[in-house]
Structures are given as structure tokens and as C-alpha cells.
Design a protein around this nucleic acid. Structure first.
Lengths: 191, 191
DNA sequence: CCGCGAAGCGTACGAACGTACACTCCCGGC
DNA sequence: GCCGGGAGTGTACGTTCGTACGCTTCGCGG
């Protein structure tokens, strides 16, 4: 093996092309042929490098998970204290819901798979785990968990809403969840 | 028309079968033939009742949205005061993430479509709008919006987590978001 | 310089797909 | 009692798909 006429980039180009295509057209419309065309490789390479289309998809989403974990690391890992962590969370929500349409779509595709197949759920577990590790540097475990869920909800609603909420609302929600004092429920019952 | 040998239930049976099949196998694997077989109708009925498979999917998800809006109405509409609303929200999160695997999967499929196609986004808008109408009976608009996002995040994370969080955590998160007092950030910076 | 085994590719095949459309069947009007 | 037409269906066509597999290409040990 490794005779020199192998092309180690082939595999990765195929995986990238797969993710691009899924982001654009959806899992329902990807095929070996379209991926091969986009990656600029012959059709035969598909079955040579991957045992089947399921194998290909699993590996592609593994790659995507690595990427998104890196995005979380980048944002949350740099925070030095609690306030910076709150800022970082707000940045994360807005970046994910606004700038990277691609990541958003791929995230949804992954969740859809995860909702049905345990194999894909493993990928989301690792992602959630890593995210919580960062948050637990600044908040207690329960708060970290709530905050993690809040990030998810805010990002999704912001991305799908007709009129996305502003940063102030994101910041307020984060502040509320990361505040222990819950002795003062709101006074009046009619807002 | 209406000659008596028409079958008005045909259409709805097809739509139900479509949703069942999507829930079980995913949008990527549905086909006219499988749907027809499951609904117990001949293949020809597919193109007779629906102009194409896109038309069929849109209508099916419209039907699903009606259903899920009804679930929200049922839970949130009955709440008489703020505390009952909080309880209702907690119930909603736990019912969606625990009991109805089908609804969860279909929700994800819809979000995936919505992330890419504006036509499907309309359906999620209506759903979010309706949900907020209920919440705004008890909370101010900003809080309602945050709570709506929180429901989304808690439900999803609870459904996908290896060890789903307990009700206490859900309740705590809801309490925090629906509490205005944010003058007391946590004391120490190392939990 | 020569073959040999691995690396990679082109092609072909069977299955499944969406859709069009000629057809049957049956009710209501006469 | 019959016939016109609309409701509903069976089938067939062209396309696209995943995958298998025989073939070519090429670096390297002898």
C-alpha cells in the first residue's frame, strides 16, 4: 500500500462535497453521482473509499460534528470569567443563527437523523458533552445544562423567525438563566 | 361531481400514511409507492389527489402543524394564571420529549425543511405565533419569546440526551426565565 | 528492466422511482 | 333503459439510483 499514486485528499474532498450538497439540497436529494460530480472524482471512487452511502453519511456528519465542536470551543473556551462566558454564549447564538446558514441546516439534518437513529445520537452527545464542559467552568452543572438548552432554542428560533429577536433579548435570557435568585417571581399577574 | 363513488377519506388517509412513513423512515426514504401501500390505495391515486410529491409533502406538514398547534393550545390554553402557565410549559416539554417520539421526529423533519425552504418556514411561523399568543396572556412579550425558545431547547435536549434531565431542572429553568429580578448575578465565580 | 500486486476507475445491471395517460366504472339526466 | 362524462385506477415509460466488478495504471522489489 501507499504506493504514491494514492491521493489522501480524495477522501476528504468527498466528505466536504457531501456536506456541501446536503446543506444545499438536503439528505433526501444526495446521491453518489452528485457527490462525485461536485468533488470532481469518478463515480467508482465512492464505493472504493466508502462501503456504502450510509457509511459515507456517518463519516460526513462525524466531520461536521468536529467542526461545530470547534466553533463551540473557540467561543466558550476563551472566556475567562462568568461575564465573558455570558458574552460568549450570546455571540455563539447570534453567529450560528445569522452568519452560517450552512451550519444551521446541517445541524437540523443531524438532529433529524439523531431523533431516529442512535448511531447519530452519539455524535450529538459528544457535542453536548463538550459544550457543557466549557459552561461548567463558569456555572454549576444544572445551570450549564439549562444554558445549553437555551442556546439551542434561541439559535433555532432566531434562525427561523420572521423577525429575529435582537441581541438584547438574547442577553436578557442568558442573564436570567444564569442568575440564582429565584425568590422574586413577578409581582402582578397581568403584564 | 360528488357522484357517490368518491371517497372523501382517501385524501386524509394518504396524508396520515405520509406522516407515519416520514416519522418511521425519514423524508429521504418516502415514495409514492410506499405511501400508497401503507394507505391501502392504488398508486394512481397519488397523482390523482396530489399534483406531485412536493404538493403531497407540503400538505402533510400543514396537517402536522395543525396537530402540534393543537397540542400547544391544549396545554397552554387551559392555564388560568402565571403559575399554571409555568406548570403547563413544563408538562409540554416533558410530554413532547418523552411520550411522542413521532411528533419529535416530524418536528425535526419540518425544521430541516424550514431551514432551507421559506414555504415550510411559514408553517413554523404560525406555530411560533400561536404559542406566543398563549404565553403572552401571562408574560410580557419579551419573556414569552424567551420562554418559547427555552421550550424548544429543553425539549430537544431532553429528547436527545443520554441521560435526560429531570422535571426539577425544567421547572427551575422556566422559573428563572419568567423571573424579572436580574439584579443578583451569582456571587462567586467558581461554582 | 521486468512483472506483480495494490490502488483506483469506467461501465453495466437490476431495482426503484415519479409521472402521464388510456382506460374502466358508475351515477344522473333524459 | 341508455348514454354522457367525470371519478378513479392500472400500467408502462424514461430516468436515476446504488453497487459490483473486470480493467487499467503505476511504484517497487528483484
Amino acid at each position: 500500500m501507499a504506493t504514491g499514486h494514492t491521493d489522501p485528499q480524495r477522501r476528504e474532498r468527498i466528505l466536504d462535497a457531501t456536506l456541501d450538497l446536503i446543506a444545499e439540497e438536503g439528505i433526501a436529494r444526495v446521491s453518489h453521482r452528485k457527490i462525485a460530480a461536485r468533488a470532481g472524482v469518478p463515480l467508482g471512487s465512492m464505493t472504493y473509499h466508502f462501503s456504502g452511502i450510509d457509511h459515507l453519511l456517518r463519516e460526513a456528519f462525524g466531520r461536521f460534528t468536529d467542526h461545530i465542536v470547534a466553533v463551540f470551543d473557540e467561543h466558550l473556551g476563551a472566556a475567562a470569567d462568568r461575564d465573558q462566558a455570558r458574552e460568549a454564549v450570546a455571540d455563539l447564538v447570534h453567529e450560528l443563527s445569522e452568519e452560517s446558514q450552512r451550519d444551521l441546516v446541517l445541524t437540523q439534518e443531524l438532529y433529524t437523523l439523531a431523533a431516529r437513529q442512535p448511531a447519530y445520537r452519539e455524535l450529538t452527545h459528544e457535542w453536548m458533552r463538550r459544550s457543557r464542559v466549557h459552561l461548567e467552568k463558569h456555572f454549576d452543572p444544572d445551570t450549564a445544562r439549562q444554558l445549553d438548552a437555551l442556546i439551542e432554542g434561541l439559535t433555532l428560533h432566531r434562525a427561523l423567525a420572521r423577525e429575529p429577536h435582537g441581541r438584547a433579548l438574547t442577553v436578557e435570557a442568558i442573564a436570567r438563566v444564569t442568575t440564582t435568585d429565584r425568590s422574586a417571581p413577578r409581582g402582578s399577574d397581568t403584564p
